[in-house]
């Protein structure tokens, strides 16, 4: 089981008709059980890469083969519905992914620790609360591969710690791809690394090698 990217290209149209190439031929294989930290500067295309792998956006050229279930990119408020409550979001996720509804609602409530807000519309949440809800929802689904944005690890420290524990617990049976512009964040979660630069991705077997290459570039 793996995720394979073959010569993936993506550019975005800018106002005024020009376009910006973000990914220019990304090739990579992510195998089951790997925890890969993808390092890149601001604007290097880290979020774009996660969006393409998750399937919410399509590459312009190239192919992405997915042989496992993949989460949505975690860390931002994506994949949630603002006008309904956290609990209703949990019910929705349970229905879509064929999970028992009562258990899912209970699990998300316990993990996200939103208190009374759990029954309030998501639009009233702080960004930290949205991150917690998003992570709890995805853990409830139990994906084969988790796509993580660095903000998951940032957050307030106690939740970051629980989040780290939950993800490390799953690492043995699932794949993890984390993007960050900070080597330290990646080091806490990942066993190997990659650097995204100039629209291309370079894999390193050793995380320290990746970090060294990232700082050198």
């Amino acid at each position: 089981m793996s995720i394979r990217l073959e010569n993936v290209h993506k550019s975005y149209k800018l106002h005024g008709g020009s376009s910006k190439a973000v990914l220019r031929g990304v090739n990579a294989v992510f195998a089951k059980g790997e925890a890969v930290g993808i390092l890149g500067r601001n604007g290097a295309g880290k979020s774009t890469l996660l969006r393409l792998i998750s399937g919410v956006e399509y590459p312009e050229a190239g192919r992405i083969h997915r042989e496992m279930s993949i989460s949505w990119p975690l860390g931002h408020a994506a994949a949630m519905h603002y006008s309904i409550s956290g609990a209703d979001n949990a019910r929705f996720i349970a229905r879509i992914y064929e999970k028992p509804i009562a258990e899912t609602v209970e699990f998300v409530e316990g993990f996200a620790e939103l208190g009374q807000y759990y029954r309030q519309p998501v639009r009233t949440y702080s960004s930290g609360m949205m991150t917690r809800l998003g992570l709890a929802l995805s853990l409830a689904v139990d994906f084969d591969c988790y796509l993580l944005d660095e903000v998951v690890a940032a957050g307030d420290s106690r939740f970051a710690e629980r989040c780290r524990a939950a993800l490390l617990d799953r690492r043995a049976r699932s794949t993890m791809l984390m993007v960050s512009h900070q080597a330290e964040t990646v080091r806490a979660f990942c066993t190997s690394g990659a650097v995204l630069k100039d629209g291309r991705l370079t894999r390193y077997e050793d995380l320290d090698q990746a970090i060294a290459a990232y700082h050198a570039g």
């Binding site: 042989e67 496992m68 279930s69 929705f92 229905r95 879509i96 084969d144």
Partner: peptide
């Protein structure tokens, strides 16, 4: 996983389709 290559399980695909539509309507 649903995306593993192999013979397509139409029964399962149909069930997921109905679940998704039901959840979206709700």
């Amino acid at each position: 996983s649903a995306s593993v290559a192999g013979p397509v399980d139409w029964g399962r695909a149909l069930r997921i389709q109905f679940r998704v539509l039901g959840a979206l309507i709700l």
